Structures are given as structure tokens and as C-alpha cells.
Amino acid sequence: MKLVLLGPPGAGKGTQASRIVDKYNVVHISTGDIFRKNLSENTPLGKKAKEYMDQGLLVPDDVTVEMVEDRLSWPDITDGYMLDGFPRTISQAESLDKILDKAGDKLDLALCIEADYSLLTKRITGRRMCKCGETYHVEFHPPKVEGICDKCGGELYQRDDDKEDTVVKRLKEYEEKTQPLVDYYEKQNILKTVNGSRTVDEVFEDISKILDECK
């Protein structure tokens, strides 16, 4: 089973991705992880990406695509994989299709978790982090003592990415760049959408039905 995971920030992709990996034994391929690995190991692709990052520039598509193509050549993906964070644009999706076509392969499914933007904003802006790695939410998962981590007693903070003005920009960017992917995969008849506004268990129940049919 080879799938792409889509959805706006705050839709719960990370939570559902973990459950999909556990239940269906697919390899979770996150572009963030690929970048970190190439940078930490100082690979040729990592060096190329670092040149752009050091200048404060976005890493161009061709470098990202090369990293993904390299990752898809690893032997651990023979039982299936789930791409998360790639593709983000139509151009990247077309590049992915070419990579798979060259290998005589294709995607089975594009799974999109959708949710109302007002709920997504509420979810993201309410998140609070601790330096120890624990995550909280002021409404849905508050700490026992406001502003203090239950686990280590550290002071909780809000990431800059989770502040309202940044969240609005992130959602707008998703709408402009990534939302067209939904139409792209719908035309290929491999798109399935799930309502991410409900509880984690309810969302995963729907995802499981889709993946069971796909298998």
C-alpha cells in the first residue's frame, strides 16, 4: 500500500499517521525527517540543501524531489509507505508520478484529512509545548497547573508557528499551494477524504475503513 497523506495544519495528520503506521505496518516517510537525516549525515544532497538554507532561501523543488527519490529506493519500503509533507505542490506531485512511473509503480491512495478552518485555528493556537517534548492544549488537553508541564515542571510556551497571525498565513498558504493537490488526485480517482473535525478515534475508524478497502 502506497499512499500520500494530505490535509491542512492542525487537521491531525501526525496523530493519524502514527496510528496508520502501527496498524498497517507501512513506513512513514516525512520530508522533515528526510531533510534532517541528509543534513546531519552531510550527504551530497544535504550539502546542497544547506547552501540554500544558509542563505535563508527555500530549498528548491529539484533538491527535495531528489531526496524523496533517494528515500523511495530504500529496501524498507517493500511492504508499503506513507508520504507525509510531500508532495506540497502540483509540480512536486507530477515529479513524484514520474519517479514512480520510472520504477513501474504508482500510488494507491491520496488520503486527505479535512476540517473547518475556524476549528483548525482553535486547535493550533491553543497548543502549548514544553522543552522536555510534552505537548498540551489549553482547552483539549490542559496541564494540571496552568502553564506548567505535568511531567517535568517546566514552563510551557507557545511556538511562533502556533501564533494566530502565523496560523492564518499557514492556512492561506495551504489553500493556495496544497489544496489544488486534492483536485489533482481526484482526477486520478485515488482521492479519499475524511472529516477531521471529530475525535481522534472517530477519524481513525473512517481511515481504517478506507485503508482496509484499499488493501
Rank of each mutant, 00 (worst) to 15 (best):
I90Q: 11
I90K: 05
S91R: 15
Q92L: 03
A93K: 04
A93N: 08
E94N: 14
S95M: 11
L96A: 03
D97M: 09
D97S: 12
D97H: 09
I99L: 05
I99G: 08
L100I: 03
K102V: 11
D105R: 13
D105G: 03
D108G: 14
A110Q: 08
L111V: 05
C112R: 12
C112K: 11
C112L: 12
I113G: 07
I113F: 04
L119N: 12
L119I: 15
L119R: 10
L120D: 01
L120E: 02
L120P: 06
K122Y: 12
K122Q: 15
I124C: 10
I124Y: 09
T125A: 10
T125G: 10
G126Q: 04
G126D: 02
R127Q: 03
R128F: 03
K131L: 09
G133C: 02
G133D: 02
P142D: 04
P142M: 04
I148W: 06
D150W: 03
K151C: 01
K151F: 06
G153F: 07
G153Q: 06
G154T: 06
E155Y: 07
E155G: 10
Y157P: 06
Q158F: 00
D160V: 13
D160L: 13
D160K: 15
D161M: 03
D162M: 04
K163S: 06
K163C: 05
K163Q: 14
E164M: 13
E164G: 09
D165M: 03
D165R: 10
T166Q: 13
V168T: 13
K169G: 07
L171Y: 00
L171T: 00
E173T: 15
E173S: 12
Y174L: 00
E176C: 03
K177L: 12
K177D: 03
T178A: 04
T178C: 01
L181C: 07
V182N: 06
V182H: 02
D183A: 15
Y184L: 05
Y184T: 08
Y185H: 10
Y185D: 08
Q188L: 15
I190P: 13
I190W: 09
K192Q: 14
T193W: 07
T193N: 11
V194D: 08
N195Y: 11
G196T: 02
G196Q: 02
